[in-house]
Design a protein around this nucleic acid. Sequence first.
DNA 1: CTGAAAGCGCTTACAG
DNA 2: CTGAAAGCGCTTACAG
Lengths: 326, 326
Amino acid sequence: MTIGEIAKLAGVAKSTVSRYLNGGSVGERTKIKIERVIKETGYVPNTFARSLKAKKTNIIGTIVPRLNSYATSQTLIGIDEQLREQNYQLLISNTSQDIKREIESIYTLANQKIAGIILLATRLTDEHFEAFQKIDVPVLLVGQQDPRCYSLIHNDEEAGYELGRYIIGQGHRKIAYLGVTEEDIAVGVKRKLGFKKAISHESDCEVTYFETSFNLKEAIKKFPEIYVTYKPSIIVCATDNIALGVLKAAQMEGLHVPEDLSITGFGGYEVTEITHPSITTAKFNYKEAGVLAAKNIVKLVNNEEIEKITVSNFDMIIRESVDKLN
Amino acid sequence: MTIGEIAKLAGVAKSTVSRYLNGGSVGERTKIKIERVIKETGYVPNTFARSLKAKKTNIIGTIVPRLNSYATSQTLIGIDEQLREQNYQLLISNTSQDIKREIESIYTLANQKIAGIILLATRLTDEHFEAFQKIDVPVLLVGQQDPRCYSLIHNDEEAGYELGRYIIGQGHRKIAYLGVTEEDIAVGVKRKLGFKKAISHESDCEVTYFETSFNLKEAIKKFPEIYVTYKPSIIVCATDNIALGVLKAAQMEGLHVPEDLSITGFGGYEVTEITHPSITTAKFNYKEAGVLAAKNIVKLVNNEEIEKITVSNFDMIIRESVDKLN
DNA sequence: CTGAAAGCGCTTACAG
DNA sequence: CTGAAAGCGCTTACAG
């Protein structure tokens, strides 16, 4: 089925059918004729021909560092849902945490004439910004921010602050903060920053900062060093994954959480609810963030104005892993 | 940059450049000229024009019921990796467990002239097969099988059998099997079937079969009914998710796993390793299955022969959640 | 091995 | 409101 055949069957010109399809001005009677033929034949326009001419598509490319992460999948679900609603299509490009492939993807997507790019960002390099500039496609960063880009971020700093206030309120005064590299602004810097602010009000509070990777198993290995040498009443972990590792390590040591040691995370991953004890965490609403991201990129694609930075919120989820001290 | 400009710069005809691009016969000297110009200009062919003419793409569409599942993401990672290697592109279509959207996706993908479809199947209906027949695109089922289709399945029955033998070997004789609907052939029927075979050798073995959904929280709710009324020494759960729910429920009741109650799952989800106790399970190799699926669909696309059914294997992962009874 | 020409299915000025 | 024609960037017989 081509537009030509439809035209013939409806007794009009191809251009008229095209106009009908694209909401141009078509007479009432012609409209009805065309409508009928299209319905009868089940005609669907050829996307390639369309894109070839229009030189753009209604596809939004989303670059993700990894597929097997709660944050990623929830965000993608939100993006997908919203994009579908606005008649855009989602194309997912997975880079397996390879920063080179991330850069490549930017160019490849641009080359495929996708309408816009959403980048679930981790670490941003100069090459990223060079790519953004070279391609003529709107880009939205998710999870990290930079003055050179539009971005949607989670409220990491505020989350760090509230979580800090909460554990202070529970009486904790000897704290281990298990963070990640400061190369990751959102997770490594912002969360810690907020947390520091929260405890800066207390004079009798002792905090030692440790660092690990995002890897759960590495957190398990790191545990003895923190616990044995420092003996904190609580370990504040920069991600739920790390918290999960610490919990596992503590339990392998025969410790009772939270009686012997309290633990908190950040993220709100589903599993934190079903561990025993369940983990107190600052939950980011990834799916909603995905919806916002989709709305924003579509606006950018259509040259509408948006804020340089959109902030998606979080909820403190109080559960069982933090002990109330006297 | 178009092929025309390249042709002009290289002093040859468009058709020659096209031939060069597609590996046709081109003289050595012409080849060098074209090569240089392409390198200098950074020319990349327009995908749409290409697909418009060739009437097909190198895109493999993968339809998934949900994005936020371990099995899905691992499978996708495997598919993506392999497809990339063979110069195909992956397009993911998420249906949010809506069977209507699943059918729609089949048609939509076909309409987009994708080369082949991989369907991570759950429940298969007549409409599915009708769609497969109507579209002229090769389809590969993953996770379920049907005589009307090529498929790649996990060795569910064998996994059920081995797991059954294992717990028998550990001395369990009063068993609760917590399964799912038989509408799901792989999970609901095959795993149970294998399990039944395993225990059929024992004369002194008592098994009661229960049913729940795939939902973790529902498994939690279901727990009292099973435990209180039947008091098994072990609950064999048809999925890791269900096992996770049962574990959580047992721990909320103050039970010790495995001393008071043993638990097993199927799947090999990452979390089963970090719960306390870690869960004994039959681990399917989802990523490898994804790789196999990608290889198979590419073969189908290229009209190569493949087996009607490919079976991806599993490993029994013995961990802490099963007690050894005297 | 190489080139001129037709055509893939659509959209978009341009006339009328 | 409607139609004829050109053109988007490529590929593919067909000649040579």
